[in-house]
Design a protein around this nucleic acid. Structure first.
Lengths: 222, 222
DNA sequence: CACTTATGGAACACTTGAGTTCCGGAACTG
DNA sequence: CAGTTCCGGAACTCAAGTGTTCCATAAGTG
């Protein structure tokens, strides 16, 4: 898990883990930290392929070329491993806020640069995690908050600057605006099986977000 | 399952069922057809509360006040029962296409009249069903197609008429337009836990769909 | 070197839940 | 009436999968 994560998520991830390896200096084989990421990557792949219900720890261990005991030395349960794997699937962006001179340029630049963590597999991982959320309210809260805030944190600075430039109508609710792209992208991921690739995002920006941002609410022209 | 369903879904539902009860006339107690709907209602409730992973046939039977054998006389497996329950959760609307004289009026009237099947529990049921879709491509296809087409079938006639009235810009792609509301409603359901109630829908219509419909794509005013 | 900890693979324990069968009673036919 | 099918509740079967333990080997410390 990258160390730029918010405290709340770090605490949640800690709660998903077993006690750490033996401290250095006592002798003994050191724990290979790379294995954690490899195991989680394998877990995520299996999760996306066959879903949470059919996923077994045996399958994850085989995929990761690890012993099952290696998995259980790190995570106390299947649920904990899968939860952490899905939470870590999309790293936070450390992109600087672009300033291309136009809202369209900013949006396209930002989303191109942030392709890694709006990667479709993140959305699929979250979808695959949805079924266990009813039984785990803390995790549900973190997943929801994280998924909601990620896109919004990316989009709101751009929309705000667009408003200053006069590209976003002054009466526009930026919170609501920032929901449009993630909503449509997520819907595509879940239902349309259309890859959320740069051409699609560009189309959504051009045909949906930009015209909407520039228009006033409640046009009532009809 | 209402008999207005498309053939594909009916075939899919038939495939989810065990052979029917003994034909009438042979004597023996008749099967109570009301129990089917009651059992599925119970299944849906449990599904939404605790998710597919934790749902047990015992829990559904208890909730439905039925014997487990009663469930298995109708459905061959847990998966089949849950799949049919979720598919039937939202009945198709038989609403007439409203004509209020304005796109806004049409949208609000249609969505108010169709509240039953855009009920949030339908979306939650579909979400809860997502985990079994990777292992069941036919069902996945039906769920996706059905969920996609339902809102679109409702919205497209209204948008088309709006275009005739000059309320929808002639360059507007109606397929894409018809995706905006369902996308945002679904996102709210899954992540924001905000009830998709008439005030929210009205707000989405006023602040998102109507201004968007009236505006041309690619404004490039920035 | 002895001692320690981590590893993968295998064997193991056990419980949970899907699915099946049984049975007394209910609801039907001829 | 006898025979038939459905019902709910209970008992049952069994295997799959979670989670645990074992062990030879590997990778460290002092």
């Amino acid at each position: 898990m990258p160390d730029t994560e918010v405290d709340k998520t770090s605490a949640a991830v800690d709660a998903l883990r077993r006690p750490a390896a033996a401290p250095a200096g006592r002798g003994g084989r050191p724990r290979d930290a790379h294995r954690d990421a490899q195991i989680m990557r394998a877990a995520l792949d299996v999760l996306i392929e066959i879903g949470y219900d059919r996923l077994t720890m045996d399958a994850v261990a085989t995929r990761a070329r690890a012993g099952k005991a290696t998995l259980y030395r790190r995570w106390p349960s299947k649920e904990a491993l899968i939860a952490e794997a899905a939470l870590c699937a999309g790293a936070d962006s450390t992109e600087a806020v672009p300033d291309t001179g136009s809202l369209r340029g900013d949006l396209i630049t930002m989303l191109a640069g942030a392709a890694e963590h709006i990667d479709e597999s993140h959305a699929r991982a979250v979808v695959a995690l949805l079924p266990i959320l009813p039984g785990n309210p803390e995790l549900a809260e973190i997943v929801r908050e994280r998924f909601l805030t990620e896109w919004q944190r990316l989009l709101q600075p751009l929309l705000a600057r667009g408003r200053e430039r006069g590209e976003v109508h002054p009466d526009r609710d930026l919170d609501l605006l920032a929901l449009v792209l993630p909503s449509m992208a997520f819907y595509q991921t879940v239902f349309a099986e259309r890859p959320v690739d740069p051409p699609l995002l560009t189309r959504l920006i051009d045909e949906i977000l930009l015209p909407l941002a520039a228009s006033p609410p409640h046009p009532r022209t009809g």
